[in-house]
Design a protein around this nucleic acid. Structure first.
Lengths: 123, 123
DNA sequence: TCTACTTATCCGCATATGCGGATAAAAGCA
DNA sequence: TGCTTTTATCCGCATATGCGGATAAGTAGA
């Protein structure tokens, strides 16, 4: 029950729900997240640390970049939560506008900056 | 999104999840909740006020007693949350023991004290 | 109205957490 | 090693929230 309330806490800030929304489309590095969400890097990293501690996301280092992705649900509740978030989040105005900004960012990004090896889901 | 994070916050304390669990079986007055959860009345009332403010529960006064019940989900997400909580909560040890204590309380309760008019779900 | 019972709110206190600038740490490259 | 880039953590500060005893408010009955 404690681990469940930690997940709920991790979902209790709008900015963190927006991060979840972005990670639903694949892993992202901190620099992309801060650009899309237009928040200072320390703020983004702090939220990611909080979500990681709650078991909501996982991080993978690749060179200087840290890529974060959603952790697969390790309990029935966690898994179902991700499912309903995946169906609900994209309807929200914040999510839609973030995804637009992300798509534009990926289009114009310098190819020498952070890239993911993983196939992206459609934006 | 703001209203959603308020619901998540309302679900972010173990004691509040235990209240949700009890309310899944029907409405309950504050005095029953404080007895089952063995917490002081001010603590129970404070949590109920928080949950009510988040739209998670509703209160109904009947004489001196206040009966609280789960609010029906007014958004798709809210509704789905209640559904998965209803399937997950009863599996937890805390929920099981609370339901036992509730059943025993209802058995031995003085019939002159608070009663509900609504049919109870099976304990 | 006075009293008893139930619940809501207030109070002081402690902790958790948010913010964002500043600084430290990690990694890669020359 | 020294420099650059990216990310993590630290810092001081402000706010939110938890706790439970004390008190206020609401209700019913004598």
């Amino acid at each position: 029950m404690e681990s469940t309330t930690r997940i709920f806490k991790a979902l209790s800030e709008p900015i963190r729900l927006r991060i979840v929304n972005l990670l639903l489309r694949g892993e992202r590095c901190v620099c992309d997240l801060m650009e899309v969400l237009t928040m200072p890097q320390s703020t983004i990293s702090r939220h990611l640390a909080y979500m990681k501690n709650a078991g909501l996301v996982k991080g993978r280092r690749r060179g200087v970049w840290m890529y974060y992705r959603l952790a697969v649900g390790n309990s029935g509740l966690h898994e179902k939560l991700l499912t309903i978030l995946a169906s609900w989040l994209p309807q929200t105005v914040e999510a839609k506008s973030d995804l637009k900004r992300l798509a534009s960012l990926l289009r114009h990004k310098d190819s020498s900056s952070c890239q993911t090896n993983y196939p992206e889901k459609e934006l």
